[in-house]
Computed example of a mutant assay.
Amino acid sequence: MELTAENLTRAFKALGHPTRLAILEWLKEPTSFPPQDQPAEQVGVCLKHIQARAGVSQSTASQLMATLQQAGLVTCTRVGQWSHYRRDEAGIAAVAEAVQLRV
């Protein structure tokens, strides 16, 4: 997957926020979050668990995750009323590859 300059800029902006960067690191180990009804390895981590670990409001957590999703760094799966997030390893790899090619 080749990133446009606009998409790469969006990814850099998303990674430039310390809480979003921390969330991406936390999502490397989804089992480090509290147990969920659905296995985190399959559907991702529920937003409420991300919110609790980040110590932010629900709306702030939603905004943080929306930015990461728009940057192509996480994916979202809806389970009932809950949103679950996981890292988009292909998107992250594409950003890393684009950086290597451009620097």
Rank of each mutant, 00 (worst) to 15 (best):
1 M>H: 13
2 E>Q: 10
2 E>D: 10
4 T>Y: 12
5 A>C: 12
6 E>P: 01
6 E>A: 15
7 N>C: 14
7 N>K: 12
8 L>S: 06
8 L>C: 08
8 L>I: 11
8 L>G: 03
9 T>Q: 10
10 R>Q: 01
10 R>H: 03
11 A>Y: 02
12 F>Q: 05
15 L>W: 01
16 G>K: 03
17 H>C: 04
17 H>K: 03
18 P>K: 04
18 P>T: 05
19 T>D: 01
20 R>S: 04
21 L>T: 00
21 L>I: 02
23 I>R: 02
24 L>T: 00
24 L>P: 00
26 W>L: 15
26 W>N: 05
26 W>Q: 03
28 K>N: 15
28 K>P: 14
33 F>R: 05
33 F>C: 11
36 Q>S: 14
37 D>P: 07
39 P>V: 13
41 E>A: 11
43 V>P: 08
44 G>D: 06
45 V>P: 12
45 V>K: 07
46 C>P: 09
46 C>H: 13
46 C>D: 14
47 L>M: 12
48 K>I: 13
51 Q>F: 06
52 A>F: 11
52 A>N: 08
53 R>T: 08
54 A>E: 05
55 G>K: 05
55 G>I: 10
56 V>Q: 02
57 S>A: 08
58 Q>D: 12
60 T>E: 04
60 T>D: 01
61 A>N: 04
61 A>E: 02
62 S>E: 08
66 A>F: 07
67 T>A: 06
68 L>S: 04
70 Q>W: 01
71 A>G: 03
72 G>T: 02
73 L>P: 00
73 L>A: 06
73 L>Y: 02
73 L>F: 04
73 L>D: 01
74 V>I: 08
74 V>T: 05
75 T>D: 08
75 T>V: 09
75 T>G: 09
77 T>C: 12
78 R>I: 09
81 Q>N: 14
81 Q>T: 14
82 W>I: 11
82 W>H: 10
82 W>R: 11
82 W>F: 15
83 S>K: 12
83 S>I: 12
84 H>T: 10
86 R>H: 07
86 R>E: 05
87 R>K: 07
89 E>W: 06
90 A>S: 13
91 G>S: 08
92 I>S: 00
92 I>P: 04
94 A>W: 05
97 E>Q: 13
97 E>A: 14
98 A>F: 11
100 Q>V: 14
100 Q>T: 08
100 Q>W: 06
101 L>Q: 14
101 L>S: 14
103 V>C: 09
